[in-house]
């Protein structure tokens, strides 16, 4: 049950790997960076925090952090709460 919505057109026909984003299996291009992942999920420009395999990755490092198959990313945001 892979997610194909995350596949950015630019990467279409490139080699695909499976990662887990927010608990969902997601197909992305091989070696994609966190910045590219955020873009491919149409989340660019939003205020987010990312945890990769249990460790927080500061926003400033997103462009340089490349993902590997099987990586687990959590992407969070602020929502209404009490």
């Amino acid at each position: 049950m892979g997610r194909s919505a995350a596949l950015h057109p630019v990467y279409f026909l490139t080699i695909v790997m499976q990662i887990v984003v927010n608990g969902e299996n997601t197909a992305v291009s091989e070696g994609i960076t966190l910045t590219e992942l955020v873009g491919s999920l149409q989340l660019a420009g939003q205020r987010l925090a990312i945890e990769l395999n249990g460790d927080i990755v500061p926003r400033s490092r997103w462009p340089e952090v490349h993902l590997s198959g099987g990586d687990r990313a959590e992407i969070v945001r602020a929502i209404g709460g009490g």
Binding site: N22, R77, A78, G81
Partner: peptide, 10 residues
Amino acid sequence: TVAVRRTNLG
């Protein structure tokens, strides 16, 4: 106050 939750991918 705000809550911190997974981003809705859809």
